[in-house]
Every structure is written in C-alpha cells, then in structure tokens.
C-alpha cells in the first residue's frame, strides 16, 4: 500500500476521532469511541514501523531467517487490512449515528 493512502486513512481516523470528541458524550469503560479510534490511528503507524524494522533486520543481518522477515511483512499487512475494516465499520456506525441524532 502506498504512503499516501496510509496518511489519508490516518487523517480520516484522526478527523473522526476529533469530531467524535465534540459531538458525542464519552462512553464509560474500555469501549470509548474516540479511544478505539485513537488506538486505530496508532496501530496503523505501528504496522508500518514493524514492516520497516523487519526489512532492516534482514538487511543488516540481524535476522538470518528469510521466512521470519516475510512473515513479519504478512502480519503487518493483515493488521493493516484489519484496521481498514475497523475504520469502515466505525465510519458506518458514525454516519448512522449522525443521521439519527437530533
């Protein structure tokens, strides 16, 4: 995935997180809407960092097993796709809520 796309998603997530702080009462407990969104933003960046780390470990000779490197890339990719789905779901829920509020 390109850098531009990731930045765009991060921007959208940050955007929603910002809006949700203003227009929705914070929920009690772990399931706070903005908290989940903030985690999502952090997670997307984390995947990219992990991918870069895996590649650098391979290039520097720190990681000698090729399959470890490839698996790190795959896990980061899956994590990213999961984030995408979460983002889509959250967007849906958000839009739904905005439509029905007074």
């Amino acid at each position: 995935m390109s850098e531009i796309k990731i930045d765009e998603i991060r921007r959208q997530l940050a955007d929603i997180s910002q809006k949700s702080k203003l227009e929705m009462p914070p929920e009690e407990g772990r399931g706070s809407f903005s908290q989940v969104l903030r985690n999502a933003v952090a997670e997307v960046n984390n995947d990219q960092v992990k991918t870069d780390e895996a590649i650098r470990d391979y290039l520097s000779g720190r990681e000698t097993n090729l399959h470890h490197t490839l698996l790190s890339l795959e896990k980061a990719d899956i994590s990213f796709k999961l984030m995408m789905q979460l983002r889509n779901k959250l967007l849906d829920v958000y839009n739904e809520i905005m439509r029905t509020s007074v």
Partner: peptide, 9 residues
C-alpha cells in the same frame, strides 16, 4: 527451498 520461501502469502 529459498524460492518456495519467497512465495509465502
């Protein structure tokens, strides 16, 4: 084996 490894995913 290395060639197969590159086919992960």
């Amino acid at each position: 084996m290395i060639a197969k490894t590159l086919e992960i995913g």
